[in-house]
Design a protein around this nucleic acid. Structure first.
Lengths: 339, 339
DNA sequence: TTGTACGCGTTATCAT
DNA sequence: ATGATAACGCGTACAA
């Protein structure tokens, strides 16, 4: 039983006599032999490993994204090299390079916002990269599975207007990602479509200088909004922490929600139903995005030679109405478990 | 400039003339050459990669654990191969084997509960494995960074008793991990230490047969508890979802919290402060556990030859008092941001 | 100071 | 049907 025979019986790459096969299998069993994946990869010049890179795992959507993507990848026999860049471009670059040098077959990335020069390595090497949640302003040429930010945001604000709101404020965070801009654009579009005035005072984008958490930002800005000569009658918070801060402020001020001010947040986290009142939200379909991204990457991986054009898929967000913005029905009868 | 020279200038493994050095660097720059980590590892017989294995990333503590561990690892130049087993022992075994075959230097694992035979591979190979959150009932011989379940649980129940509770119920989930048992033991110890009766009716461990979410289980069991001839005046929920379900049930029943029934949950998630009333919790120090586990693994990795005995470190949980169990002070003045 | 050549554990191409 | 043997891309001992 030579090396070649052993390789043959393991990979069933050619016919092996029943006798030899048995002897090899016995040897494997008694030795506890296990093939070295590194050597396999070096020899075959391919790995069954893909990299997943995120700007932060401590965001409410990251775990779901990671889970759905890894589940698909595992089902197809891929391992995943994981890294979180903590929003630092330096670390993002290092991680990208490290993954490239580790010969990952492809990459799944949630762009942090700025540039991502290291992705060029993959482009030049012809290795597929799939962007998740939003694309990059600069570097194109990669597939991207987006979240429907514009439409989701527009739906939310339109809903507020339908509820009778005439002065809808928006709480945003400074960010250089496409997502924030798209959400703001959706807000403006809804205001415009309804023929309402776009009051700059009602657009509260956090200054990068004012440090503090999203929650504090939502809290602080809401207090300022309510101190306006003509305060808003609707608030759209572009992430859930700002929504919480906003809600806290509104309660402290004795403002009734949704009657005086209707409130809508972003991302349907488990606990949004348990706030008082339960929060209406734009619900991003995170699991779908992760699943589609991974599936897409695998498709690119398995159909290598064929140079299909890069695709941009948008997964629509769903608007979930709860008590915080619903002025028509009573507070008690509402859906308990949206899906 | 031979292969050896190139290797020398890259790894600074021996002296290279300024001239040769420049020529090599120029070549690298113009070629865009990047060392193949697989080949490096194959040659050196060592990798700077460790595996992280979890039963599920969609638990409230997993992201923090993953983040703190990866941060430490990255800081020390390690890559991480990630896998989540979804609680399935088959997948857990496969993932463990895959990581072993990928020549990871060591492993960070949150045991799923049952056996973990694949860890034997690491033992035999002399590769370090550090268990997180809890150990395995069977296979010993690995370091484990535990969470102080017994003490955390005992503190919580003792607190409830201090608040005047005489019939403290406990909501638990069936699980074959050490953690659940330790928490139950802590509950019993507190009851015993206070000289109170241990009423079996007050211990509600979910049957594996009754499927449904933790939240539903907490809801359902709380309704049954309150229907008892002499209902409890305190409830300790061993995870946060059960606590939410319990709270929902209590509110529906018109039970005052904490006056009629004091409630304590587990794990200090971001939103526990925003429930009404804010929830008292046993706060596991997840970040510390992840950080310590990673640091410990790296220590084992770098001090290879020295066969130190396996260690078992326990990180105490902190008890955070909020309105849901605090009968002494008013509801308004309480800490807003524990750390 | 630098180049040659062998080995790491596989796969794959030849022969046999 | 199976056994040598050359890659794969690197580190490194040894020679020059």
């Amino acid at each position: 039983m030579s090396i070649a025979t052993v390789s043959a019986v393991i990979n069933q790459t050619r016919f092996v006599s029943a006798d030899a096969k048995r002897r090899v299998e016995d040897a494997i069993a008694s030795t506890g032999y296990r093939p070295n994946r590194l050597a396999q990869s070096l020899s075959t010049r391919t790995t069954k490993t893909v990299g997943i890179l995120m700007p932060t795992i401590l965001s409410p959507v990251s775990p779901a994204l990671l889970k759905s993507a890894t589940d698909v990848l595992r089902a197809h026999g891929y391992s995943v090299l994981f890294a979180n860049s903590e929003m630092r471009s330096t670390w993002e670059t290092e991680a990208t390079e490290l993954m490239f040098d580790s010969q990952v077959a492809g990459l799944l990335v949630v762009p942090a916002g700025g540039e991502s020069p290291a992705l060029e390595l993959f482009r030049k090497a012809g290795k597929p990269v799939v962007l998740m949640l939003h694309g990059l302003k600069t570097a194109h040429g990669h597939d991207v599975i987006r979240s429907g930010n514009f439409k989701g945001s527009m739906d939310a604000v339109t809903h507020l207007i339908d509820q009778g709101c005439r002065r809808v404020a928006v709480l945003a965070l400074p960010s250089d990602t496409e997502s924030e801009e798209e959400r703001l654009a959706g807000y403006r579009a809804a205001i415009g479509a309804a023929g309402l005035d776009l009051d700059p005072d009602l657009v509260r984008v956090g200054e990068p200088s004012e440090s503090g958490t999203s929650e504090e930002h939502g809290y602080e800005q809401t207090r300022r909004l309510m101190a306006l000569p003509t305060p808003p009658d609707g608030i759209f918070a572009m992430n859930q922490y700002m929504a919480i801060g906003s809600l806290t402020a509104l309660k402290e001020l004795g403002v009734r929600v949704p009657d005086d001010v209707a409130l809508v947040g972003y991302d349907d986290l488990i606990w949004t139903r348990h706030l008082e009142p339960p929060l209406s939200v734009v619900s991003q379909q995170i699991e779908a995005i992760g699943r589609i991204a991974a599936t897409h990457l695998i498709h690119r991986l398995t159909h290598d030679g064929e140079p299909e054009p890069t695709e941009s898929i948008t997964v629509d967000a769903q608007f979930v109405i709860r008590a915080s913005s619903d002025r028509k029905t009573t507070t008690t009868t509402r859906e308990r478990n949206p899906t």
